[in-house]
């Protein structure tokens, strides 16, 4: 029993959870408005986009791959889908999602094809496709903003569940964007844990040669992984439009590293084979809470990067120390007394 408790405490998810609780209690003691339903639902809404992105990044990372093009994919989907809906297609929110998932999947498959076919490091391929996707879009659109967005996309972010009314009359509650994030997270978690395709992603990331030897088709799995990554970027695109109701060609470019950092902090291994949905969610939430706390505590937001960098570094050092301890205790030779 004691051993089991220790095992749970050693888990990355538990560590993150404890850090989140500690920060929350500290901030709450300084700023009582922190642990209120209104603030929590706002924080969750604010990190929903990163949260959705992180699910795609998680799958790619577990497979032993790397993707920095997902934001560019989302940006292209945003522009293309809104343009199509405005000019060519009579639509609704479902059609919007379908189109965005389609565009995202295709661009993701393009990544997967290049990575599998040319056997080049995914980081280099996706840095090039990131520039390619974004560059082509910018050339064609000349960077024009789309101010007009179909109104039926708005409710996704304005609708709330469990809503309440604040003293000043404003309505607040859990946004449907947040619901979308958690629903998607549950689907991804089931996929990764209970399906053979999902489990193959762990096999591929853990030992790609061994996976091949037990009959996993690496080409198919690579295409699947990057295809899903692209599809999830497409879903994030629609959620993002719904929040800002404008399409700005460069509005989310540059946020790639925040998402990747959250996934890694959530316990996913950059070398592949390890990672969980719960850890990823906690990683995203931790970053969001730090951001929010700085605002509430009226600390300059310039400190945000310092904290993020510090936390990532600390988590890496803790890991390294654990490994070092393990190897020290290892018995290499049974020495007679």
């Amino acid at each position: 029993m004691k051993k089991q408790i220790l095992e749970v405490l050693k888990k990355r998810e538990m560590l993150l959870f404890l850090i989140i609780v500690a920060i929350s209690l500290f901030v709450q003691s300084k700023s009582p408005s922190f642990l209120t339903y209104e603030n929590i639902s706002n924080v969750l809404k604010a990190c929903s986009i990163v949260g959705i992105f992180s699910l795609g990044v998680l799958i790619v990372t577990i497979s032993g791959g790397f993707d920095v093009s997902f934001v560019a994919i989302a940006q292209v989907s945003e522009y293309l889908v809104v343009w199509l809906l405005l000019r060519h297609i009579q639509g609704n929110i479902y059609i919007a999602f379908t189109l965005a998932i389609l565009v995202g999947t295709l661009l993701g498959l393009f990544n997967g094809f290049l990575i599998d076919h040319y056997k080049m490091p995914a980081i280099i391929i996706t840095i090039s496709t990131q520039n390619l996707f974004y560059g082509i879009m910018y050339v064609i659109t000349e960077g024009r903003l789309l101010y007009e967005v179909p109104q039926y996309l708005a409710p996704l972010s304005t609708n709330k569940i469990f809503s309440a009314v604040a003293a000043n009359g404003a309505e607040y509650g859990i946004s449907t964007v947040t619901v979308l994030w958690f629903a998607l997270a549950i689907i991804v978690a089931i996929f990764l844990r209970y399906t053979i395709s999902g489990r193959s992603i762990y096999l591929m990331g853990g030992n790609s040669l061994a996976a091949q030897r037990i009959g996993i088709n690496i080409t198919k799995s690579t295409l699947m992984v990057y295809g899903i990554g692209g599809a999830i970027a497409g879903i994030a695109a629609i959620a993002h439009i719904s929040i800002i109701m404008t399409v700005i060609p460069n509005s989310i470019v540059g946020t790639e590293m925040d998402t990747i950092a959250a996934v890694i902090l959530g316990g996913a291994s950059i070398t592949g084979g390890v990672g969980s949905v719960l850890g990823t969610i906690l990683g995203v939430i931790l970053f969001a809470i730090i951001n929010n706390s700085l605002t509430l505590l009226q600390i300059s937001s310039s400190w945000y990067n310092v904290f993020i960098g510090g936390i990532i570094l600390a988590s890496i050092i803790i890991n390294a120390l654990q490994l070092k301890q393990q190897s020290k205790r290892k018995v290499r030779v049974k020495v007679e007394a």
């Binding site: 762990y202 096999l203 853990g206 030992n207 040669l209 061994a210 996976a211 291994s269 084979g273």
Partner: peptide
């Protein structure tokens, strides 16, 4: 039984 064992250390 391969020399590298071809197992999955992460699972």
């Amino acid at each position: 039984i391969y020399q590298d064992l071809s197992l999955f250390p992460n699972l």
